[in-house]
């Protein structure tokens, strides 16, 4: 599924090596080494507290890793302020709680980044924003404020807001966990369309249907470690590790 091109010799766009993260005495990430190829769709699974969210938050440096290396599209994530600015416009992120800016209209939420960071002219930014709203299916909500939208609509606006920065990579941190069941599909549809368009995506989610149907690869985290990874078919039907089997037996 996903992008057949990705399985070929596409360049690796995310590489991590021995990443560790500590919160005080608690080790949240333990020696995570992985890579993601361009146009690849990776779904990250794991029980709560397994470090999967911490991991993708490290990928755009919302959390700083304590050891190991993370290289995104050739940019090293370290204390270099130039790299930090560069990475933020390469990597888009969608949050569980949407985190739209409540004091700005939908349109201004989307144009804020392009106008203030990329210095796009207002008109141009707004045209692009309308196209993105069209793409996520809610162009008619442009003038409204986030509080006037449903959860699903808010999350779609959040996706459009991230896309407005024209990122090479999109990170999704449990994008459907805060949604009412009837709204989950509208968000997943947008994500699927995005995947088909060739975006590189790392998705933390509990939606097994999405993982099976859209992902090129599934990664399983437990207790801060990357326990197992493989194609969806391999992962769901023939898991190798005991911990993976236990997890699958609990959720399926």
């Amino acid at each position: 599924m996903g992008n057949e091109a990705a399985s070929a010799a596409a360049p690796e766009i995310i590489v991590t090596e021995g990443v560790e993260k500590w919160f005080g005495d608690f080790q949240a990430l333990d020696d995570v080494t992985m890579s993601v190829k361009e146009h690849e769709i990776v779904v990250v699974l794991g029980p709560s507290g397994s470090g999967k969210s911490t991991f993708i938050r490290c990928l755009n440096r919302l959390e700083e890793h304590d050891a190991g290396r993370i290289v995104i599209d050739g940019i090293e994530l370290n204390d270099d302020v130039r790299n930090l600015n560069a990475i933020r416009s390469e990597v888009g992120m969608v949050f569980q709680q949407f985190n739209l800016f409540p004091h700005l209209s939908v349109l201004n939420n989307i144009t804020l980044g392009p106008r203030k960071v990329r210095r796009q002219p207002k008109r141009e930014a707004e045209e692009q924003a309308m196209q993105l709203l069209e793409r996520v299916g809610i162009p008619e909500q442009a003038e409204k404020f986030p509080a006037q939208l449903s959860g699903g609509q808010q999350q779609r606006v959040a996706i459009a807001r991230s896309l407005a920065m024209q990122p090479k990579i999109m990170l999704f941190d449990e994008p459907t966990s805060a949604l009412d069941p009837e709204m989950i599909k509208e968000v997943l549809d947008v994500m699927q369309e995005l995947a088909e368009s060739g975006m590189t995506m790392v998705v933390v989610t509990h939606e097994m249907g999405f993982a099976r149907g859209v992902a090129d690869r599934v990664m399983f985290f437990d207790e801060g470690a990357l326990v197992e990874q493989g194609t969806p078919n391999h992962f769901f039907d023939n898991p190798r590790e005991e911990r993976t089997k236990l997890f699958l037996s609990q959720i399926l």
């Binding site: 888009g92 949050f95 985190n99 800016f101 203030k116 920065m165």
Partner: peptide, 14 residues
């Protein structure tokens, strides 16, 4: 909420 700062950083604002 802290998410506001994070979202702003995630769209590239300094």
């Amino acid at each position: 909420p802290h998410g506001q700062t994070e979202a702003a950083q995630a769209v590239g604002l300094g």
